[in-house]
């Protein structure tokens, strides 16, 4: 059985988020009023918040996961860690060292059943950037280096999960080869899981979530076809979560969303991070 390892402080899991920071990420995300870089940064900040929430016990945040965030394209032809002075960090360190805190509002139901607005502190770990070209290959290679070391230290852990969010083709070569090398990396519990999210800026674009075949993608879109090939086949636990949300998935569905708007981006991030947390011990 694969993807079955218990995730514990002794056997933590690993999430790496890769974010495209190229200039085109400053364009508005389809169906929203904000840029793709803003929505992507916000979505990943929220996802890290959710992961910390799930790892929080009365005595603090337990290190069930290591986390890495890589940005590519903030500086021309460069990929780098977006965490200050660190690459992979235990999740408790992220909880203790946000870049800044924001005051946000939420609605709570009071004892008399009335909805009241309440403020809470929301952490931000990285800011949106949209600056240069798209050195995705460099980003993937940096992730590969980190994962290589991590797997050597955690051979029995739940396999690493890598989530790549991008809006365009790589400008530093073909990422397919290094993506395949990534997917071939494994722990004793299974192969690395590589998720790809293609952000859209087309207002009425039809998103495709977890497609099963390349033929359903636009025939002339080489980038879509490439990201499909780069993505892992959804393992059963993830497939079940997708089915629970009434998504049409099959045994050959890929961990890929084409032409994603905000809803699809959030769905991909949530499903991509939720299945491993069901193995928390």
């Amino acid at each position: 059985m694969t993807y079955n390892a218990e995730i514990s402080r002794r056997n933590p899991g690993l999430f790496i988020f890769l974010i495209d920071q190229s200039r085109s990420m400053s364009h508005k995300l389809g169906g929203t009023l904000r840029s793709k870089s803003q929505e992507a940064a916000d979505a990943i900040n929220r996802q890290i918040y959710e992961l910390i929430y799930r790892c929080t016990k009365s005595d603090g945040v337990r290190d069930y996961f290591d986390i890495g965030i890589i940005g590519y394209g903030a500086v021309s032809d460069t990929a780098q860690s977006l965490l200050k002075d660190a690459d992979l960090v235990p999740i408790s360190r992220l909880a203790e060292t946000p870049l800044r805190m924001e005051r946000r509002k939420e609605t709570i139901t009071d004892p008399d059943g009335n909805d009241v607005e309440s403020e809470f502190e929301f952490p931000v770990w990285f800011e949106p950037v949209a600056n240069s070209n798209t050195p995705m290959v460099k980003g993937l290679k940096l992730a590969q280096q980190w994962i290589d070391d991590w797997i050597a230290e955690h051979p029995d852990s739940y396999p690493p999960v890598v989530i790549n969010i991008s809006d365009g083709a790589a400008t530093d070569g073909d990422p397919l080869e290094v993506a395949k090398e990534l997917i071939d990396m494994s722990t004793n519990d299974g192969n690395l899981l590589f998720w790809n999210c293609h952000l859209s800026e087309i207002k009425d674009a039809q998103p495709l979530t977890f497609p099963s075949e390349k033929s359903v993608l636009p025939p002339n879109d080489k980038f879509a076809s490439q990201l499909f090939e780069m993505s892992s086949v959804l393992p059963p636990g993830f497939k079940r979560l997708a089915q629970e949300r009434s998504l049409d998935v099959s045994d050959t569905s890929r961990a890929y969303v084409f032409n994603a708007g905000l809803d699809e981006l959030m769905e991909l991030l949530d499903i991509g991070t939720r299945a491993p947390t069901e193995n928390l011990q």
């Binding site: 910390i52 929430y53 929080t56 009365s58 603090g60 945040v61 909880a95 203790e96 805190m101 709570i108 309440s118 809470f120 502190e121 952490p123």
Partner: peptide, 10 residues
């Protein structure tokens, strides 16, 4: 409480 405990304990 630090933010992560406060936000969950609510």
């Amino acid at each position: 409480l630090p933010w992560f405990l406060k936000n969950k304990a609510v």
